[in-house]
Design a protein around this nucleic acid. Structure first.
Length: 488
RNA sequence: GGGGGCAUAACUCAGUUGGUAGAGUAGCUGGCUUUUAACCAGUAGGUCCAAGGUUCAAGUCCUUGUGCCCUCACCA
């Protein structure tokens, strides 16, 4: 999509240069103030001379007078360009200016006849000449494809987009604050993994030239973060960009952000407390607090009450309620699995419970509007979780559901190196294309040095942001979602 | 990967049973000293996503391809 620059803009650029004006000057404005700051203090400062900068997004011109709307991150301010007040060079510059250009205006704070606080320019300077037209001012840029491909235009042409992404940023800050407040340390672990693990997903492959070795982009930071528990770092978290070579949908992007946090001497239940606090704090940071003190968000036409505490139910109980069969009733389940046309693709516990879980996903999960913690998952499908002491059929694990989506997944972390090795071996034997096909022996060795009992949790941050901001698609909360390149 | 939908000017969109391409905004020219979607007059702007096909004639119908959207599958 090569868009040739318009003739007239190129002409104006040439005219500027011919007049000895640098259209892309190096020197920054010396005493620049932002629009919101000027407007907030306007009444007290009327008559003062200030300098404001911004992108020209509106212009209403007269013969010897023009009104310009200057847009900066804080807001918009009107500059009045009156021939009688401006120096001659500045007034003639108006001719060479287009919508979309960045300019600097110095002038006196004064209200217009209609009472609008404005800067009456005495001097103007071009800061950056735009060669492409901004989208139509009233309609903005609507096409979702264009908006995502050219987010740089979306951000300035569509109202509300910058605040929207600033809220995502506020949620991330809130997460860091909540965890730091609880004595967690933020860490960074490798993105390039020689062996992939910590989740079931197909990885991206890459290659290191000098070492001549294959590498994977991480599908989860889990196994490295738990190595840190072995090393004695008791509370760690990582806001990790992870990569999964899977389908793309309105809730899946090949790279996404996952928060993982691990805490020694904690278990899945304490992690549920932490998750609750993280979600509540993030919701407040996103502005979900209501006047009556409740915390609410509306996502896909459904309103969710995030006022703590969140419900907790057992997997087996939810299963019985929505499927109508005891999760341990093998005979009845076998019949149901068969009648639903679900394949049991192999022998043994793993495949059996995978089929049972298939029923759970199909009949229970859609009912879980949330916020709700589902606890005690079948141990056979939880190779990294500690089996429950009361009944090893179940693992000390929860998944957290909100807005009909799985948002978080947590365990009491398995720290028995021999059991872990067994689980890894079974995983590799049963490898069905999704699960890791190689054993991470270094991780097992780390466990053998002793890992304290610990709880760990992973939260899908993009989905959390979607729900808190009421965005229907993951693409609306990613600045640059993955797209096929357009030909050009 | 399966099914469905969309693709027309820089942006937002019209375009009838197939008959030779339209508007608003942005741009350009002129006018205008209080507008805020400024206004008035004029002007310019198109490989109708691409390639084939049917037809006297295709933006419109058919086939294939490309991109995006929705949906199902997959993604614990």
């Amino acid at each position: 999509m090569t868009t040739p620059y318009s003739e007239d803009r190129l002409q104006k650029l040439a005219d500027l240069r011919a007049a000895g004006v640098d259209p892309y000057p190096a020197s920054p404005p010396s005493q620049r103030e932002c629009a919101a700051e000027v407007l907030a203090t306007f009444d007290a400062r009327e008559g003062e001379t200030v300098t404001v900068c911004g992108r020209v997004l509106g212009r209403r011109g007269y013969g010897k007078l023009a009104f310009l709307d200057l847009d900066d991150i804080s807001g918009r301010i009107q500059a009045v360009m009156e021939k009688a007040l401006l120096d001659e060079d500045s007034f003639s510059l108006l001719k060479q200016m287009n919508l979309g250009d960045f300019i600097e205006v110095t002038g006196e704070l004064k209200k217009t006849q209609k009472g609008q606080p404005s800067v009456y320019g005495t001097r103007m300077r071009i800061l950056s000449k735009a060669l492409l037209d901004p989208p139509a001012k009233w309609h903005g840029m609507n096409d979702v494809e264009l908006r995502a491909r050219m987010r740089y235009v979306d951000l300035f042409a569509n109202e509300g987009i910058r605040p929207h992404f600033l809220k995502r940023s506020a949620i991330l800050s809130s997460i860091r604050a909540t965890l730091t407040k609880n004595a967690y340390t933020e860490v960074e672990t490798p993105v390039l993994h020689p062996v992939y693990g910590g989740a079931n997903a197909r990885p991206f492959h890459t290659h290191h030239n000098t070492l001549d070795m294959g590498l994977y982009l991480r599908i989860a930071p889990e196994l490295y973060l738990k190595r840190l528990l072995v090393g004695g770092m008791e509370r760690v978290f990582e806001l990790a960009r992870v990569f999964r070579n899977e389908g793309i949908s309105n809730r899946h992007n090949p790279e996404f952000t996952m928060l993982e946090f691990y805490e020694a001497y904690a278990d899945y239940s304490i992690m549920a407390d932490r998750t609750e606090q993280l979600v509540v704090d993030a919701a407040c940071a996103a502005g979900c607090e209501q006047e009556d003190g409740t915390i609410q968000t509306t996502f896909r036409d459904e309103t969710f009450n995030l006022t703590p505490p969140f419900n907790r139910i057992r997997y087996a109980d939810a299963f019985l309620e929505h499927v109508g069969i005891e999760a341990t009733n093998r005979e009845a389940l076998a019949e149901r699995i068969h009648s639903e046309g679900i394949d049991i693709s192999g022998e043994g516990d793993y495949f059996w419970w995978k089929a049972v879980n298939n029923l759970f996903e199909r009949f229970v999960e859609p009912q879980l509007r949330g916020p709700v913690f589902v606890t005690h998952y079948p141990a056979a499908i939880c190779p990294l979780a500690k089996p429950s002491p009361e009944d090893p059929t179940w693992a000390e694990r929860f998944e957290f559901f909100l807005g009909g989506m799985e948002l978080a997944n947590a365990f009491s972390e398995l720290n028995d190196p021999e059991l872990q090795l067994e689980n890894f071996k079974r995983q590799v034997e049963d490898s069905d294309d999704e699960s890791p096909n190689e054993i991470d022996h270094d991780y097992v060795r780390a466990l053998a040095y002793g890992m304290p009992p610990a709880g760990g949790c992973g939260i899908g941050i993009d989905r959390l942001v979607m729900i808190l901001l009421g965005s229907d698609s993951i693409r609306d909360v990613l600045l640059f979602p993955l797209m096929r390149p357009d030909e050009d």
